[in-house]
Amino acid sequence: MADETRDLRDVLTGVLLAGLGLAVAGYALATYRLGTPAAMGPGFFPTMLGGVLAALGAAIGLAAWRRTRPEAAPQPKPRAMLAVTAGILAFALTVRALGFVPSAFLLVLCVGMADATNHLPRLLLLGAALTLLSWAIFVFGLGMPLSAFNL
């Protein structure tokens, strides 16, 4: 099968880049005044960049389509992605409502899940230690105006 030997990851890369380039150029053309080279409007530079990106994306995609040996590609790690996303979201959503201490603790618990070897007792301990440490450094040491609890 010819398709199996194609570098599909890079074909996808090319398509995504070209799509992004076209979207930027199209949006800039549609919304901002283009102007002339001597008196550029706000749309000139973004339209130009979008065009260049679309061309580069097309070149990358085409070259990959014609290539026969795919290069090794990293595999996605949904566990790590989810854990880190959950951790940052938890911090962003709770730091005002609950205060720094519970928020930092939640972040460490969530992010720690990214690694399967981190079991719950260890995470609880790590959460407590890091919360205490960061409280000591940033609030006590550097005097940042963060409140510990807003309960």
Partner: peptide, 10 residues
Amino acid sequence: FPGIVLFTCI
């Protein structure tokens, strides 16, 4: 790494 993310957010 949880510490890195925590320090980033702070």
